[in-house]
Design a protein around this nucleic acid. Structure first.
Length: 463
RNA sequence: UCCCCGAUAGCUCAGCGGUAGAGCGGGUGGCUGUUAACCACUAGGUCGUAAGUUCGAAUCUUACUCGGGGAGCCA
């Protein structure tokens, strides 16, 4: 092996965790900030591998000193040299360059300052906020959660189904669809002739992969989708986006109980996985974004989720003595204020609410023996609200037909969905998890726009 | 879509009827190792837009635009 060869690039996360004094290293990254004294300059270099920066020390007469004026906040550098033991507290090792190259300088109006910025402002510079502490931590945790999700289902024998993004089925009740068309539409305002459109019929961006997942479940038993989902709702809240990712497992030969168990296992497993994989970033969220976050999540891992029926929930709300803007009443959907009371004040942990009245739920949910409620489940979580919505599906052909008829849903449009009940139907169940809402819960970030790299919301598609 | 709140320097905000302020960031100089370093000096603003009330408007009124929070819809 040639001794003079440049050392391979090593991530700063690795160097700070296990780098030894004397080790020759090569790092590339961006200057977070710089501190000057007369005879020494400290550069905080970040390469995205972790929250912490590597301290690079410049001294007069040593390599790199002459480039000092170009090493401004935001500039990109390639630095190599030995790690040395740091004489001051704050970091175990620092880098004393033998060569330093400013790859790209940074102008003096670089917008990210070494101080707290407002989230609203950071959203206006989505191309640079990726270089902030908060967004860096978010990006790494988001990445970790992504792998946790696939890992959880793969370990349990679930088959991954990439559900189609352009679809003709509108998963009744899930929300408004974005239209996909090649027709020149909008001049007269009247509906176009979809038979002349690209697909020969009305098409849009998927609002849910559930119906396709049901098809797959009737062949592979345990399946899941995980992909982008689109809703054209004019929702202006901190927890709605027009484009978000949804995780939708579906299991054949499974009832509502199996569904609840899977959902609880899932939430616990992915939270546990992220805590293990991203301790530094999670510590940052605990310290800077939501005090007590780690304690909250640890508590979730250790205690069983609460399960109550909708009917019990309404009784709890009636007996609570709380003043609600809209009093809870059986037959009406739970308001946000009700969900918040249950999850945040009364039970103080994630809570499943099951068996909702049939009239406020979708046509495909399984009718309970009482004839009034369906086998539905929502998971409510403190601070975020509804994070999971699911149900046991109606597998009995006659029941499904009756439901669709009473809700004015065309059997022609769902002919294949009905077919699944004619050929080897099984009891089956599934749910949908909002990936970003889960991320909000895990990081403590309060706005969905800050857990999506490039968020799409009504009137906003700047990046 | 509805209700509430906001918009002042590059950023975070104070000023709330009498000729525009602070901290941070930027620039310059100083400081033998700093950790959101420190010290001194300095440059930045037709106070979101338009109209109105007033001797006088950043400040009061109205409309509009944009943003935030909440509601509904849901994940």
């Amino acid at each position: 092996m040639a001794e003079s060869a440049q050392p391979a690039e090593t991530g700063i996360a690795v160097l700070l965790a296990g780098g030894r004094p004397g080790q020759q290293v090569l790092v590339r990254g961006w200057v977070r900030t710089r501190r000057d004294s007369k005879d020494v300059t400290f550069i905080e270099l970040n390469d995205g591998s972790c929250l912490e920066n590597l301290q690079v020390v410049l001294e007069p007469g040593r390599p790199g000193w002459e480039a000092r004026d170009d090493v401004t906040t935001g500039a990109s550098l390639v630095v190599s040299g030995p790690l040395v033991e740091s004489p001051a507290a704050g970091q175990p090792v620092e880098l004393r360059p033998e060569s330093l190259e400013v790859t790209g300088g940074s102008e003096d109006d670089f917008p990210l300052q070494k101080k707290r910025h407002g989230f609203e402002y950071l959203r206006t510079i989505a191309h640079l906020r990726v270089r902030s502490n908060t967004f860096g931590a978010l990006a790494r945790v988001r990445n970790s959660l992504f792998t946790q999700v696939h890992g959880f289902f793969q370990e349990r024998g679930f088959l991954f189904l990439p559900a189609p993004i352009i679809t003709a089925s509108d998963a009744e009740g899930a929300g408004e669809m974005f239209r996909v068309t090649t027709l020149d539409w909008g001049r007269g305002g009247e509906e176009p002739d979809y038979s002349r459109d690209f697909f020969g019929q009305k098409a849009g961006l998927t609002v849910s992969g559930q119906l396709e997942a049901e098809i797959f479940a009737q062949a592979f038993q345990k399946v899941y989708t995980f992909g982008p989902t689109f809703r054209a709702e004019n929702s202006n809240t901190s927890r709605h986006a027009a484009e978000f990712w949804m995780i939708e497992p579906e299991m054949a030969f499974a009832g509502l109980e199996d569904n609840l168990r899977l959902a609880e296992d899932f939430i616990k497993a992915v939270i546990g996985g992220v805590l293990e994989q991203c301790p530094g970033d999670m510590g940052f969220f605990d310290a800077r974004i939501e005090k007590g976050l780690l304690e909250k999540l640890t508590h979730v891992l250790e205690s069983p989720f609460e399960t109550i029926t909708y009917t019990e929930a309404v009784r709890l709300l009636e007996e609570s003595g709380e003043k609600f803007e809209f009093p809870a009443a059986w037959g009406h959907d739970l308001q946000s204020e009700h969900e918040r009371y249950l999850a945040e004040k009364k039970l103080r942990r994630p809570v499943f609410v099951t068996d909702y009245p049939k009239d406020i739920k979708a046509f495909y949910m399984r009718m309970n023996p009482d004839g009034k409620t369906v086998a539905a489940m929502d998971l409510l979580v403190p601070g975020v609200g509804e994070i999971i919505g699911g149900s046991q599906r109606e597998e009995r052909l006659e029941n499904l037909r009756r439901r669709m008829d009473s809700m004015d849903i065309s059997p022609e449009e769902y002919w294949w969905y009905l077919d699944l009940r004619r050929y080897g139907s099984t009891p089956h169940s599934g749910f949908g998890v909002g990936f970003e809402r889960l991320l909000m819960y895990i990081t403590g970030l309060g706005n969905i726009r800050d857990v999506i790299p490039f968020p799409r919301t009504p009137g906003n598609i700047g990046f």
